[in-house]
Write a protein that binds this DNA or RNA. Structure first.
Lengths: 145, 145
DNA sequence: GCATCAAGCTTGAAGCAGTCAAGCTTGAAC
DNA sequence: GTTCAAGCTTGACTGCTTCAAGCTTGATGC
């Protein structure tokens, strides 16, 4: 089909472009996150950690949510703890584990962060229905692998 | 409108989740790129640079394509040059600028890299039509900002 | 022509992110 | 109770990234 073309497979090219787009959007989001984080005195990684702190959890749990090594989580949480945003408590049932809890300041800052992240989001160019479509596609792509 | 709900605005929540999905997919792509790059003796950043080298260009141009500082591009290109994959030539018309050119080895490696990147892509879970839809949505989102 | 300013690139210093191996404490299993 | 695994931390190390400073060269204005 399509005759003797010497160009690379069109489907492969399309997929590569698509990867580029996903990366581009992800980068925009990353920049967006970093800019907002900086206004709160946070780095991007710290903001991510804060965002994932939906409630008390262990170091391991946080590391998994951030998809990084536990040692890396230690590094990030150290910073947050020094800023008085998070606290390492004894785990109620497992004395090996730490239970991470946001301080009142941490909770306040997290709320402000979440607010900021929504403002001028790179996804604001899509209407609600488009966002839903995008969500479905992304979920399908992610589930597979 | 919408009555006195005390939960955060549902639209904001949806957008946040969507951001998370985009990030998730981007992370998967990043892992994918890194794994493939390593098999060729490259780091992820080096692979990105190689991928963006669609033809001769200046340092500044490459930096923009990689959306990083020129000094960072210098750092990456140094590595690629040491591996004999890229060459800094005198720019034909501007003696301040360098013209980056892939060596034959660099061209070969770039081709292999692009091949590898397509194999088992995280986007393989979507069919052609879904990929096209996704592309359109991403383009719209990116153009805006 | 000459002075001034901007553009392109590089350098060095610094910080953050991330991984890995090693070690400690504690829980679980046999 | 011994052994092994889980949870976390530490230290060493690498790579990425940014910033300020500096150099060369092009462009602009006088």
């Amino acid at each position: 089909m399509r005759g003797m073309t010497m160009s690379p497979e069109p489907q492969a090219v399309a997929e590569r472009e698509l990867c580029g787009l996903v990366n581009g959007l992800a980068q925009q989001i990353a920049v967006h996150v970093r800019e907002r984080a900086v206004t709160l005195g946070l780095t991007a990684a710290q903001a991510t950690a804060l965002r994932e702190m939906t409630g008390p959890m262990t170091m391991r749990e946080l590391a998994e949510r951030m998809s990084c090594e536990p040692s890396n989580a230690t590094f990030i949480v150290d910073k947050l703890e020094k800023q008085g945003l998070i606290e390492r408590r004894a785990h109620p049932t497992d004395r090996r584990a730490k239970q991470l809890v946001l301080t009142p300041e941490g909770t306040t800052l997290r709320d402000r962060l979440l607010e900021l992240l929504v403002q001028d989001s790179p996804l604001a160019g899509l209407n609600a229905e488009q966002q839903r479509t995008l969500q479905q596609l992304l979920e399908q792509a992610i589930v597979r692998s």
